[in-house]
Every structure is written in structure tokens, then in C-alpha cells.
Amino acid sequence: MSDGELRTFPHWVICEHCDSVYRRIALQAGQAARCPRCLAPLYRASRLDAQRWLALTIAAGIVFLIANLCPLVRISLQGLHNEATLWQSAAALAQGPVALIALPAALSIIVVPFLQIVLLGWVLAFACRRRRAPGFAPALRLLGLLRPWSMVEVCLLGILVAIIKLSGFLEVAPGPGIWAMAVLMVLITLIANRDVHWLWEMVDDVAAGAAA
């Protein structure tokens, strides 16, 4: 270690919500540690190893493609038909004075989930081969920033509300995209809603093992 480098305490953990300091203890798969002061979750032991996590990420990538290419809903009115995909939905907001809102809409239902899948896939593909991916630190930081803006589940509820809203005066049928969105919602929750800090520890262990 060079001079002036800060001392680190990898066997400690600090609660993000109240700044209490604890010694890390090993957890069984699926267990979670909770801060006794503020009751916020501290960290949890993952049920997934890197391989399974990567497999789910690839599955999410495939489902994401289907959800983007296939129409979500089909409607018909007096012999006329129409259907809409995710992209068309975001683009439908880009008209007139409200055009600005199309940007966050497209971000939250298309761009952010896409980035989450790509970044996780990149980092995990290397982690499976026991290596730290190039750009590991910025990728993990970006994943942390993106998490609150990923709105696949809100979008799915939005599609359902839209179907009910229109079914009063139109014939409405769900398209294949809606099923893909439902699966994507489950997969994104599994892969991207988890503690990304855990990846740091996993890769740190790998690096320590390689150095030894």
C-alpha cells in the first residue's frame, strides 16, 4: 500500500440509513441482516451465485427484446385495427407542448431496463470467469443510480389500466408484448433489485484469492 492511502475495514458494515457501525457476520443463503437502530436492511446473503445470476440476466435480455418488438395491446373500432409497442407509447407523448415528458417515459420503461441488463451482463460475464470486468467500478455505480428509475412494473400496471380504460368503447386484446413485460418485470426484480454491494464483496474475494 502506498502512503496516504486510506485505511479500509472490509469486515465492517455501516448502515446506509443511520450510520451505525457493525461487524459483518456470515449469513446463510436467503438470510438478511437488519440494523437494530433504525430497522433498515443492512445486507443480505444472495441465493444466486454469479452463473445463475448471469443466466437470469441473459433471459431478461431476450424477454426485453420480445417486449420491445411485439405489440403490447391491439384495439379495433368499426373494422379498423391498431396496435402499439413500447416505443410507440413513449413516442406518443412526444407531441406538441408536452414533448419533454416523452424523455423520462422512454428512459424509465426502455433505456434504464436496457442499461441495467447490459451492465449486469457485462459485469457478471467477467465475474463468472473470476475476473473483474473493465469498467467494473463505474458500471456498479451506474447500476446503483439507475435502480430507482427502472419502472417496468409501473408500465405493466399502466398497460392494464389502459386496457380497462379503452375496453368501454373499443375491442381490446392483449398482444404478446404484455406477456413479455410481465416476465421482464419478474426477471428485472430478481436481477437488478438486489444489493449491488454484494458484487463488490464477491469480486474482492476473487481478487484476494488471485493475489494469494
Binding site: 402499439a84 410507440q88 413513449a90 406518443a92 407523448l93 408500465c155 398497460i159
Partner: peptide, 11 residues
Amino acid sequence: VLVVAIVAALV
């Protein structure tokens, strides 16, 4: 916001 987007894209 998303409901309006989907409805406007469809109809």
C-alpha cells in the same frame, strides 16, 4: 403518465 402514453399510442 404511462397510461396516457399507451392510450395515446393506441387510439
